Simulated assay, not measured.
Amino acid sequence: MKSLISATLLFIMLFYSVGSSGKWFEDSQGIMGTNIHVELWSDSAQQGEQAIQAVMEEMQRINQAMSPYIESSELSKLNKYATQDFVTVSKELFDLIWLSVELAKETDGAFDITFASVGYLYNYRESQKPQQGQIIDLLKAINYRHIKFDPAEQRIFFAHPNVKIDLGGIAKGHAVDNAIALLKKSGIKHALVTAGGDTKLLGDRLGKPWMVGIRDPRDRTKQAVVLPLADTGLSTSGDYERYFEQDGKRYHHILSPKTGESAYEVQSVSIIGRSSTLNDALSTAVFVLGVQKGMDLLNRTPGYDGIIVDNQRKLHYSNALVE
Rank of each mutant, 00 (worst) to 15 (best):
M1W: 08
K2P: 07
K2L: 10
I5T: 15
A7D: 12
L9R: 14
M13V: 15
M13F: 14
L14Y: 08
F15I: 13
Y16K: 04
W24P: 03
E26K: 12
D27M: 13
M32D: 03
T34A: 02
N35K: 10
I36P: 06
H37Q: 13
E39Q: 14
S42L: 06
D43P: 09
Q46M: 15
E49G: 07
Q50K: 12
Q50A: 12
Q53M: 13
Q53V: 05
Q53P: 12
Q53A: 14
Q53T: 08
A54D: 08
M56A: 10
E58G: 04
E58I: 09
M59F: 05
M59C: 12
Q60V: 15
Q60D: 15
R61M: 03
N63L: 07
Q64V: 06
Q64F: 03
A65S: 14
M66N: 08
E71I: 13
S73T: 07
E74F: 10
L78A: 02
N79I: 04
D85E: 15
F86G: 06
V87P: 03
K91L: 10
L99H: 09
A104D: 06
D108T: 10
F111P: 02
F115K: 09
S117C: 02
N123A: 09
S127N: 15
S127C: 14
Q128W: 03
K129W: 04
G133Q: 15
G133V: 14
Q134L: 13
I136D: 15
I136W: 15
K140Q: 15
I142C: 06
I142M: 05
Y144H: 14
H146Y: 12
I147Y: 05
I147F: 03
D150F: 10
P151C: 01
Q154N: 03
A159G: 13
K164D: 07
G168L: 02
I170Q: 01
A171Q: 02
K172W: 02
H174W: 14
A175Q: 07
V176Q: 02
N178I: 04
A179D: 03
L182D: 01
L182T: 00
L182I: 08
K184D: 11
K184A: 11
K185C: 04
K185R: 09
K189W: 09
L201D: 02
D204M: 10
R205F: 11
L206E: 05
G207F: 10
M211P: 01
I214N: 07
R215C: 01
V225E: 00
V225L: 14
P228G: 03
D231H: 00
T232F: 11
S235I: 07
T236I: 00
S237I: 00
G238S: 01
Y240S: 05
Y240K: 08
E241K: 01
D247W: 05
G248M: 11
G248D: 07
K249N: 07
H252Q: 05
H253P: 06
L255C: 02
T259W: 02
T259C: 14
T259P: 04
E261T: 10
S262E: 01
E265Q: 11
Q267T: 11
D280L: 13
A281S: 11
A281Q: 08
V286G: 00
V286M: 04
V288F: 01
G290I: 06
G294Y: 09
G294N: 02
M295T: 06
D296R: 12
T301S: 12
Y304P: 06
Y304D: 05
I307G: 01
I307R: 00
I308R: 05
S318C: 07
A320H: 13
V322N: 12
E323D: 15
